[in-house]
Design a protein around this nucleic acid. Sequence first.
DNA 1: ACACTTGTGCGAACAAGGTCGCAAAATTTC
DNA 2: GAAATTTTGCGACCTTGTTCGCACAAGTGT
Lengths: 219, 219
Amino acid sequence: MSDATLENRAVPRPRAPLRPDDGRLARGRRSRARIRAAARELFRECGFDGATLRAIGARAGMGASSIYRHVQSKHELLILELADTQEEAWTRFREQDDRDAPTRERIASFFAAQHEMLARDLDLTVIALRATTYPEARVARRVLTLNDRTVGLLTEILQVGRKRDLAPDLDVLAAARAIFHIASGVRLSWANGLASEEACRSTIEASVTLLFRGLEPRP
Amino acid sequence: MSDATLENRAVPRPRAPLRPDDGRLARGRRSRARIRAAARELFRECGFDGATLRAIGARAGMGASSIYRHVQSKHELLILELADTQEEAWTRFREQDDRDAPTRERIASFFAAQHEMLARDLDLTVIALRATTYPEARVARRVLTLNDRTVGLLTEILQVGRKRDLAPDLDVLAAARAIFHIASGVRLSWANGLASEEACRSTIEASVTLLFRGLEPRP
DNA sequence: ACACTTGTGCGAACAAGGTCGCAAAATTTC
DNA sequence: GAAATTTTGCGACCTTGTTCGCACAAGTGT
């Protein structure tokens, strides 16, 4: 699916394909795959900032400028990785999700799955956040769209809970966004070395619990 | 105070000053002031990314490389502005703050003051966020420290409220962090054009209310 | 076979942040 | 006043993401 994603968004084919397929297109597809593999490897080895486009190009067997035939920017390579990682986290969550469990537990289970993925390469999350600070760039919106999908999943969970163990008049979308933003903020501290991986995990846990209970006193 | 901040953090004086002052230092001080003024103007005119270091240098009457005698990086110029803006928001808040008002209202009043400042140049906030995505850089930590001060103020407010209209066993620091992260996240959407300035304001309002009430049902 | 279209690659070049070594200016020390 | 020292400025240069024009390759239509 990751390959399909890249295909659909590739630069040279803004409109629907005129011809069914083509030797050229096949060659391009192989190149794209090589680029993606090289990028993934180098991101892991040197981090996003450490991975030079020239290095990526070299490993993919082409010049740096040729990469731009297949990708709009370096950030886009990141988005592709991020999308895959996210997908992986989702399926992992769905596998062990119990829709009848208390909402609080389902949320916790989701973050556990997501955290496991992010811990492997925290870089992705952080740089994705950076991408959203370039509002003119096309990638910023795409990252936000990706985030929206996570928010959507959280919304879904809360929606179920609203009929059971949550306040019936709850604005689930707003609540989902709040949870998401809190988690992002905490991870940023983690990335900056202000919290260990474990501390990050438990802080998110605590914050979600806090949000569930609310700040005001309960009788 | 902004000048003092810049003085203290300037590159060429890592250790305590050997001599009390110096004509040379006076000259440097004037240069720093010119750099800051030029940077502030150009940030306003062209935005952070649009303001070239060469342009800033030109307006300050020096070459681009000379700027680095006084500042460690372009991001540092931003931090200086951000600190000033933040300070301004704080004093504005303190002027109209009523410590006896309900906690919910005090928080709202704080965000109103802060929002007024940020709306003038949203760039600051967004780019500051970007700076935190370079964890190796010294500036990242400094931005987080700046954020911590805001969190501290929120904590203070909540601390007062805990003895009155909030849950007595509330973890005020965690709550303050949660509020801060939510606000940051919403502003990012604003910066990306996904929400108007007014929508940003009201969304933060709604989120804070949500956090106060909590997700779980109340009798 | 012929032009014609289109996808792919290349290397030079650009912009912009940042580094480096040298020279001038300002002060201290003798 | 001369020498040493420190601050400030300069311009050349590096790095890296990105753009551009050109050339080649792979098909298509006639």
